[in-house]
């Protein structure tokens, strides 16, 4: 256990930002970026999938409780954590597992973009489908998925840009 504390702090910080700030961003009634995904995008490559799934479950549950969307975030979040390592393996087969985390500086901006968009799109697709629960008003669900994927990805890339400076 070298340094668990930074992760706990990051977990809490991301959760608070999501619940207090980003959940209250109302733009035209469509946009609600889910920036808490940054926490999972930045987990070390060597981080065990089973642990990240449990963290995903906890994060999803907490976001759900605050947003009154019981189970929706939990499901989407656990799914993202489950496929994350496989996705990293597919994109960056050359990436050394010893390297701690996926960052734009290390893998290049294009690959980093692919990595983020893939997971965010999966997360948002599952999330908004489950939330609408049926294919009721499918056009709007689709619009929400696309707009929010662009929005969340934008925020993640901005954050990564600032961090790499």
């Amino acid at each position: 256990m070298p340094s668990v504390l930074p992760y706990i702090l990051r977990f809490v910080a991301v959760l608070l930002l999501q619940v207090l700030l980003f959940n209250n961003l109302d733009f035209m009634g469509y946009l609600s970026p889910y920036i808490y995904l940054i926490f999972f995008l930045r987990l070390p490559v060597s981080f065990k999938t089973s642990y990240s799934m449990l963290l995903g479950f906890l994060m999803g549950l907490l976001v759900d409780i605050f947003a009154n969307t019981m189970g929706v975030h939990t499901f989407a979040c656990v799914l993202v954590c489950f496929v994350r390592n496989g996705w990293i393996g597919m994109l960056f087969s050359t990436l050394n597992a010893q390297q701690d985390e996926v960052s734009a500086v290390r893998v290049g901006w294009l690959d980093y973009f692919k990595y983020v968009v893939g997971l965010v799109l999966l997360h948002h697709t599952v999330l908004y489908m489950l939330e609408a629960f049926t294919f009721f008003a499918f056009g709007y669900t689709l619009l929400r998925i696309v707009l929010n994927t662009v929005c969340t990805t934008g925020f993640v890339l901005c954050y990564e840009y600032l961090r790499s400076k």
Partner: peptide, 21 residues
């Protein structure tokens, strides 16, 4: 299959929460 089982277990709990809400 521990990873898959854990995954299925967690997702099942999420679905139950979703349905039972």
């Amino acid at each position: 299959f521990s990873l898959l089982l854990l995954f299925l277990a967690l997702e099942t709990v999420a679905i139950i929460m979703l349905v039972q809400f």
